[in-house]
Design a binder for these strands. Structure first.
Length: 207
DNA sequence: CTCTTGATCTTCT
DNA sequence: GAAGATCAAGAGC
C-alpha cells in the first residue's frame, strides 16, 4: 500500500469551505432542462462523503434514450413519482448509477449524475475504490456511486434528508454542453452538461 | 493518446 | 434472448 497522509486521529470536525443549506424539493420540481445545468457546481453528499457535481445528463420521458420512455415498470417507478428522490439502477450487471428525479408528478424525468470533484471523505472514497488517483475516484456514473457507497438501498430515498443532501453552488460556473454518452438512441440531443475545463469529468468536452 | 474486449446480470421482449 | 445511461485492462500507435 502506498503511503497516505495520516487521517485525522479523531472525529474532530475537518474544515471544508462552508456549504449552503441543503436544497429542498422545490429545486427539483422544475423542468429537467433547467435543473440539470444548475446542478453543475452543486455539492452532493451521501453519509458525509461526496463532492462537487461536474457532469450530468438530462433524461426525459418523451425521448427514447430515457428509461421512462416506455412507461412505468417496477424499475422505473420512482421516476413517475414526485421530484426530489433518487432513482438508482443497475448498469451492465455490475455498476450502480444515481439519478435525481425532477419535474412535477406525472412527468417522468431525471438527471443522471456522471462525475464529481471529490471534496468530502476522500480517504473513504479511496478505500472503497481501492484507488489513489483523486481525479479518477468519481469520474464516471458507476465510479462515483462506488466511491459514495450508493447501491439499490438508496433507490427511492429523498435527496433532501439524511443520508443524502445536495447543496447549491455559490458561484455561476462556466457550463459546457454536448451529446450524451453511452447511448444509441436520441444521440443528437445535447443534454450532457459539464463544468468547463474540469479535470474530473468522465470524458472531456470538445473544445 | 485511441481503440478493443471481457466481465456480468437485470430488465423487458 | 438480446440489449444495455459502464469500467478496467491491454494492445497498438
Amino acid at each position: 500500500m502506498p503511503k497516505q497522509p495520516a487521517p485525522p486521529s479523531s472525529n474532530a470536525a475537518v474544515t471544508f469551505p462552508p456549504l449552503r443549506k441543503p436544497l429542498g424539493r422545490n429545486f427539483f420540481e422544475r423542468s429537467v432542462h433547467d435543473v440539470a445545468p444548475e446542478l453543475i457546481g452543486a455539492t452532493l453528499l451521501v453519509g458525509g462523503v461526496g463532492g462537487v457535481i461536474v457532469e450530468v445528463e438530462a433524461y426525459h420521458q418523451s425521448e427514447p434514450a430515457a428509461h421512462s420512455y416506455r412507461g412505468p415498470t417496477p424499475r422505473t417507478m420512482v421516476m413517475f413519482g414526485p421530484a426530489g428522490f433518487a432513482y438508482v439502477y443497475r448498469s451492465y450487471g455490475m455498476h450502480w448509477c444515481i439519478n435525481f428525479v425532477c419535474e412535477p408528478e406525472g412527468s417522468a424525468a431525471a438527471v443522471l449524475i456522471r462525475a464529481l470533484q471529490p471534496t468530502h471523505g476522500i480517504a473513504m472514497m479511496r478505500r472503497r475504490r481501492r484507488l489513489e488517483d483523486e481525479k479518477a475516484l468519481c469520474s464516471g456514473p458507476g465510479k462515483l456511486t462506488s466511491a459514495l457507497g450508493i447501491t439499490n438501498k438508496h433507490n427511492g430515498l429523498p435527496l433532501t434528508a439524511p443520508p443524502i443532501s445536495v447543496h447549491a453552488r455559490k458561484l455561476e460556473p462556466e457550463i459546457a454542453m454536448g451529446p450524451r454518452i453511452g447511448i444509441t438512441k436520441a444521440v443528437e440531443l445535447p443534454w450532457r452538461y459539464g463544468l468547463k475545463g474540469s479535470r474530473f469529468l468522465s470524458k472531456a468536452f470538445p473544445a
